[in-house]
């Protein structure tokens, strides 16, 4: 198999906490290349969120491997995995998950501060990114003063702040209206082209699927279809 930016090998995940063990992933092997704009789709309970968690190193597989830029992240100890996430992966969450006490700029800067970037550089980069996502006039607003669409754009800027190789977005448009969804997708496609950042979405949203260049369909924990357009 040709190894891409991200590749998985025979990923299995069984949740044994319940009386009847739940098999969430059932041997997923796939490879995602640099600068792809990929949607992972499938019905509820098909395993797409579990797969996204595995790709982001947020959850460990029962068996199998996840390789990112040649690093087998499933074998990394907890501390190194956290550090790996900080420097290599950007996250966009369904509920935005911004820090409410920080302004838009500070939310973006926060990741850079965790990376140890100097104050001047992180301020400059945060402002650049907020301008890039179309929020130059909302830099000093707190999340509570922003609309859902604007908050999600801040979270995209935050995900891009650490210059990750890829961004994982879990149902990023689920809480947005059509206009905000379209704007967000435009921004993400622009970032994908401009920075060559790989975007991987888990989604139910047809509007996202329509814009994705690759759609991986998961059913019963397996890859049912893998289409590139």
């Amino acid at each position: 198999m040709v190894m891409g930016v991200i590749s998985t090998k025979a990923l299995h995940k069984v949740y044994s906490e319940t009386r009847i063990p739940v098999r969430a992933l059932n041997g997923i092997s796939l490879s995602i290349e640099e600068a792809e704009f990929t949607a992972i789709v499938g019905p509820s309970g098909s395993g797409k969120t579990t797969l996204l968690n595995m790709l982001g190193g947020l959850d460990a597989p029962s068996s199998g491997e996840v390789h990112i830029n040649g690093t087998n992240i499933t074998s990394l100890p907890s501390r190194r995995l956290i550090d790996f996430r900080l420097h290599n992966i950007g996250f966009v969450f369904q509920s935005f998950n911004l820090i409410p006490v920080l302004t838009a700029r500070e939310n973006v800067e926060f990741i850079l501060q965790l990376q140890g970037v100097s104050k001047n550089e992180r301020q400059k980069r945060a402002i650049e990114l907020l301008e890039a996502v179309g929020l130059p006039d909302k830099i000093d607003n707190r999340p509570g003063d922003l609309s859902g669409g604007q908050q999600q754009r801040v979270s995209v800027a935050r995900a891009l702040a650490s210059k990750p190789r890829f961004i994982l977005a879990d149902e990023p448009t689920a809480n947005l209206d059509s206009k905000s969804t379209a704007e967000l997708l435009d921004i993400m496609m622009k970032m994908n082209e401009q920075y060559k950042t790989t975007f991987i979405f888990s989604t139910h949203d047809q509007r996202v699927m329509d814009r994705a260049r690759r759609i991986i369909t998961i059913e019963d924990g397996k890859v049912a279809r893998d289409e590139t357009r």
Binding site: R79, I82, F91, N97, I111
Partner: peptide, 11 residues
């Protein structure tokens, strides 16, 4: 929020 911080790489 704490989950998000840990996810994005806050040790």
């Amino acid at each position: 929020e704490l989950g998000m911080l840990m996810a994005v790489g806050m040790n």
